[in-house]
Amino acid sequence: MILREFFIIVAAFAAFASATAAYLAVFHGEAPLKEILSTAFAAVIGLYVGRYIERRLAHGR
């Protein structure tokens, strides 16, 4: 269970980071590492907040 959650975090972070880097490179011509990592981190936090809310609503708590 913990290994699955770790894999989800790593996969989500990698996906958000690569998508952010691609967007910045295409539309802005540069991709600063600080901006990529902070955006990916915020997206993963948002993902987990959404998962938490969804689980709470599904269980009726």
Rank of each mutant, 00 (worst) to 15 (best):
M1Y: 09
M1E: 15
M1K: 13
I2G: 15
I2S: 15
I2N: 14
L3W: 09
R4A: 10
R4T: 07
R4F: 08
R4M: 04
R4C: 02
F6L: 14
F6T: 14
F6M: 14
F6C: 05
F7W: 05
F7R: 05
I8V: 15
V10W: 15
A11P: 00
A11E: 11
A11H: 01
A11G: 01
A12P: 05
A12Y: 01
F13P: 09
F13E: 07
A14W: 15
A14L: 12
A15P: 02
A15D: 02
A15K: 03
A15M: 09
F16D: 07
F16C: 13
F16V: 05
A17R: 01
A17K: 05
A17M: 01
A17C: 02
S18W: 11
S18N: 13
A19H: 08
T20D: 07
T20E: 14
A21N: 06
A21F: 00
A21V: 00
Y23H: 11
Y23D: 12
Y23L: 11
L24T: 06
L24G: 03
A25V: 00
V26D: 07
F27V: 02
F27G: 00
F27I: 07
H28Y: 08
G29Q: 03
G29L: 04
E30Y: 04
E30N: 15
E30I: 12
E30C: 04
A31E: 05
P32R: 10
L33R: 08
L33I: 15
K34Y: 12
K34L: 08
K34F: 15
K34Q: 06
E35H: 09
E35N: 14
I36G: 06
I36M: 06
L37P: 05
L37N: 08
S38W: 11
S38Q: 13
S38Y: 13
T39L: 09
A40Q: 00
F41W: 05
F41P: 00
A42T: 13
A42S: 10
A42Q: 05
A43P: 02
A43H: 11
A43C: 09
A43S: 04
V44K: 10
V44Q: 04
V44H: 08
V44Y: 00
I45A: 05
I45P: 01
I45T: 12
I45Y: 04
G46C: 03
Y48K: 15
Y48R: 14
Y48F: 15
Y48Q: 13
V49Q: 04
V49M: 09
V49P: 02
V49F: 12
R51P: 02
R51Y: 14
Y52N: 04
Y52W: 07
Y52M: 07
E54V: 14
E54T: 15
R55F: 04
R56D: 12
R56G: 00
R56T: 05
L57D: 13
L57P: 01
L57W: 09
L57C: 09
L57I: 10
A58L: 11
A58C: 02
A58T: 12
A58E: 12
H59M: 10
H59D: 04
G60L: 10
G60C: 02
G60H: 06
G60I: 03
